[in-house]
Amino acid sequence: MPLNSKQPRIAPLVPPYDDEAGAALEQLGHAPIQLFRVWARRPELARGVAAWGRYYFSKHAALTVRQRELVIDRTTALCGADYEWGVHIAAFAEKAGLTADQVASLAHGGPDDPCWDAADRALLRAVDELHTTYDLSDPTWTAATDAIGEDAVLDLVMVCGWYHAVSFAVRALRLPPEPGTSPIG
């Protein structure tokens, strides 16, 4: 089946949901997008994802909304995860203060593009290095911790890894774009 197939490999649940799936979707705390409705087929999986997401989308995370979205958007772009890219750009790009040039750079540019400040560059270099080497060199670690702090770098590593997993899932599931979203382009 081609990657851009209109049919997902695992059909998302459709309403009406049984009590357990409905409760799992409610715990996710978001509109029941396709990915969440696939996870809700296994409510215990959905509950685990919800717990993880509550932390990383809370005020307790060390990354700011902007930093979190830079990590997620860059990771999903590097992974070619059109579905997740589209969801995050539609839902969070404006909240994160991303300009059109920055969105384009996340999709097809790099940390050295003129639209980024020094802190954004350090963060994006860390994401790019994690993606290509599965590690952070000492200079990249130092630059990132100098720019955003040690706690935020720990969150960056975890969010980047999580969105690699999410990217794998949405690609392998062949989820078509959500209404009102656009692919990486």
Rank of each mutant, 00 (worst) to 15 (best):
K95D: 08
L124Y: 09
L13M: 05
T142G: 07
H108K: 15
A122M: 04
L3A: 15
R47P: 06
W85P: 02
M1Y: 10
L63A: 12
L70S: 01
D138A: 13
A40N: 11
V65L: 15
A62I: 01
L70E: 02
A96N: 00
H30I: 10
A21F: 10
A169F: 15
E69S: 10
A147N: 03
G22L: 02
C79D: 09
H30E: 11
E44I: 01
A62C: 10
V65D: 00
D146L: 10
L156N: 07
G22S: 04
L3N: 11
A24K: 03
A81F: 06
Y163L: 08
R54V: 05
Y163T: 04
R41N: 10
R54H: 15
D146W: 01
I184F: 06
D18E: 01
A172H: 11
L173M: 06
G185H: 12
A23P: 00
Y134R: 14
V71Y: 00
G22I: 07
P177N: 13
D151I: 01
C79M: 14
L78A: 10
A21H: 09
I89S: 09
P8A: 11
K59F: 08
E129T: 04
L98D: 09
F168Y: 14
R68E: 00
S58A: 13
G29V: 11
P176Q: 02
R74A: 06
W52M: 13
T133V: 11
H88R: 13
G149L: 05
Q7K: 14
K59S: 15
A31K: 13
V159H: 07
I148M: 11
L25I: 04
A90F: 03
L136I: 02
L173G: 00
V71N: 06
H164G: 05
D113H: 14
H108F: 12
A107R: 14
L123F: 03
A147T: 07
L130V: 05
A104N: 09
A96Q: 05
A91S: 15
D18Y: 07
A104F: 01
P111Y: 05
R66N: 03
P176K: 08
P139V: 00
